[in-house]
Write a protein that binds this DNA or RNA. Structure first.
Length: 575
DNA sequence: GCCGTTTTCGGCCCGACTGTTTTCAGTCG
């Protein structure tokens, strides 16, 4: 069983326990563990029992259940719970406005087991026969069933960012003196977002009207003095919170999350005789306001260095903030070059010169043109002769450009057997080579690992492109033994890419962090297929920040000469 | 179920909004 499968079982146990009205802290323990394991990076199946128990939030009991899952593929405790409740009942729990208490009442009171049962009962007016439920609740449930398809699940960060930007612009126009900004997972730079959270500090109460009457609002879920929720066209839920200006910092902290980070921070507040909420940090005994006007003030009052939003996942950042060892995170502005892009010679939409001028305008000092190799026939991939002609044309381009340097490279396919799609003497004549997999995804883990190891062993390969091949929300990455790949890359001096395409972000944050721990250097690049595509670097940089990367971890933060010198092909060989 | 330079037992984050209510439980983030 892999980490995600184990996490799913633990989450399901948590959900079932909640319907059973078990101890809420026990439920939290299961969910915490599920979240931790889902983001672990290394396969928990390969860890020793002792190492597993060293993971925060995993104790004797959970370690036992995890071992049982790995050894037998299921857990007795989980199966026992499923004897009590049919698994289809969990679908009910995921409806908007339906929680564990409602699910339990529906199941025990009316025998409702499925979404179909629920719809029939609601239409038949039978829900209102239950204690604490009325006609409105019935209507709410029917709405939730209706919205289920359109408004469930997470979406790509870029879609949330776009939707949030228009909404924030509209609100700022309404209340120009207020501090209005996106918070939540969007501010943390998460690769997907489930909803859009917006904070308005110092806005007049009437901003709620501006919010609920925003042109794209389809339905109002809640409307209060300080908090409202709406569904907007395109499938997002958006929440607006209003606080006084004095509470700006506390509210930013509170609504940026994550939940796990906030719980840990409030724990810390309690241990220091304080209480932390969205209005500020207060002494419990005197109710004295300690901090809250600005966000760094909250962290300082708790004895912590300011934690950048991207790190707030309770993955070690609080200890690091206490010890003063937080990284100085890389920024988009630190990037001097972009080493992966395509032109009209293969499947891009602009020629090399247009791409170069656009890159220069975006503040870059150097780029590499890396069109596809021949295996990608549908993209008009290059054979050796065309690749070398293209390289000559790219180098000639430098004579017409001033202030930006263009490198001649290739994104060369890694064939199924691990050999490169172009001959070594061709690759040797280029300035930079990215090796990527675009075919035969469904190999087993060992074969796929050997395939990439063979590519790393080729002395002309500088970078492994989108190393796991995942497409966010669409396709899981191919299965590889990441540790082996990273160890080999570190030894060979091959860099790993963070591909900035919004549906790739590959390596992802967790894996890029592990790469850094293995001493592997990272290259953040856009994989642009048009001039607009160059803007994607922003998302790659966010992912790198979530991976705790500093400028020194990222090769293309360096000036051109130093960058070239750090490429595998140009490094002095140690024998 | 986890966790402990106060604790191996007794803690475990916090507040807003809704609906069905005469004071609050349930849900959500």
């Amino acid at each position: 069983m892999n980490n995600l499968a184990i996490a799913r079982v633990l989450t399901e146990i948590g959900d079932l326990l909640e319907i059973k009205a078990e101890n809420p802290f026990k439920i939290r323990a299961y969910r915490n563990a599920a979240d931790t394991i889902a983001h672990l990076g290394t396969p928990i199946a390969e860890m020793s029992d002792e190492d597993r128990r060293g993971i925060p939030g995993i104790g004797k009991d959970l370690a036992g259940k995890i071992a049982e899952l790995i050894e037998t593929g299921s857990a007795r405790y989980h199966q026992e719970l499923l004897q009590e409740f049919p698994p289809s009942i969990l679908d009910l729990l995921h409806l908007q406005g339906v929680g564990p208490k409602t699910v339990a009442a529906l199941f025990h009171g009316l025998g409702i087991r499925t979404l179909e049962d629920l719809e029939l009962a609601a239409r038949g007016g039978r829900i209102r026969s239950l204690k604490g439920m009325g006609a409105k609740k019935e209507a709410l449930i029917l709405k939730a069933l209706e919205d289920r398809q359109r408004f469930t699940g997470r979406r790509l960060m870029v879609e949330a960012a776009d939707a949030a930007a228009s909404l924030v612009a509209a609100l700022r126009e309404y209340a120009p003196d207020a501090d209005i900004s996106p918070v939540g997972s969007l501010r943390r730079g998460c690769e997907t977002c489930g909803d859009i959270d917006i904070l308005a500090a110092g806005a007049p109460p009437s901003i709620m009207d501006a919010f609920t009457s925003y042109t794209l609002v389809e339905r109002i879920l809640a409307r209060g003095e300080t908090k409202s929720s709406v569904l907007i066209r395109g499938g997002f839920q958006a929440d607006l919170r209003v606080v006084p200006k004095d509470s700006l910092g506390a509210a930013l902290q509170y609504f940026t999350g994550s939940k796990a980070h906030n719980i840990a921070l409030r724990d810390r507040a309690i241990s220091r005789g304080c209480k932390l909420n969205e209005y500020g940090l207060f002494r419990v005994d005197t109710n004295e306001f300690v901090a809250g006007a600005d966000e760094p003030g909250i962290y300082a009052a708790l004895g912590l260095a300011f934690v950048p939003p991207e790190l707030r996942e309770n993955r070690g950042e609080i200890d690091a903030a206490e010890a003063g060892t937080l990284p100085r995170l890389v920024t988009r502005e630190d990037l001097r070059g972009d080493l992966h892009m395509h032109t009209t010679v293969t499947d891009g939409r602009a020629d090399a010169e247009t791409m170069a001028r656009a890159a220069q305008a975006s503040g870059l000092d150097y780029i590499a043109i890396t069109d596809h190799s021949q295996a990608l026939a549908m993209a008009n991939g290059l054979d050796e002769a065309r690749a070398l002609d293209h390289a000559a044309a790219i180098r000639a381009l430098n004579g017409r450009l001033d202030g930006i340097r263009v490198l001649a490279g290739i994104e060369c396919d890694i064939r199924a057997d691990g050999t490169m799609d172009l001959a070594d003497d061709c690759l040797a004549q280029l300035d930079i080579v990215i090796a990527s997999i675009h075919s035969a995804f469904s190999m087993d883990e060992t074969q796929m690992t050997e395939r990439i190891l063979r590519a790393i062993a080729n002395p002309h390969v500088d970078i492994i492109g989108h190393p796991t091949g995942r497409l966010i929300l669409k396709r899981e990455g191919y299965r590889i033994q990441l540790e082996r790949v990273l160890t080999a890359a570190a030894e060979a001096g091959v860099a790993m890419e963070i591909n900035s395409q919004v549906d790739r972000l590959d390596l992802d944050d967790t894996k890029a962090r592990i790469a850094k721990e293995h001493g592997v250097k990272i290259i953040i690049d856009s994989d642009a297929h048009s001039t607009a595509g160059l803007g994607a670097l922003r998302w790659g940089a966010l992912t790198a920040r979530r991976a705790w990367l500093e400028p020194a971890d990222v090769l293309n933060t360096q000036p051109l000469d130093a960058f070239l010198g750090s490429l595998r092909r140009n490094r002095t060989r140690h024998t």
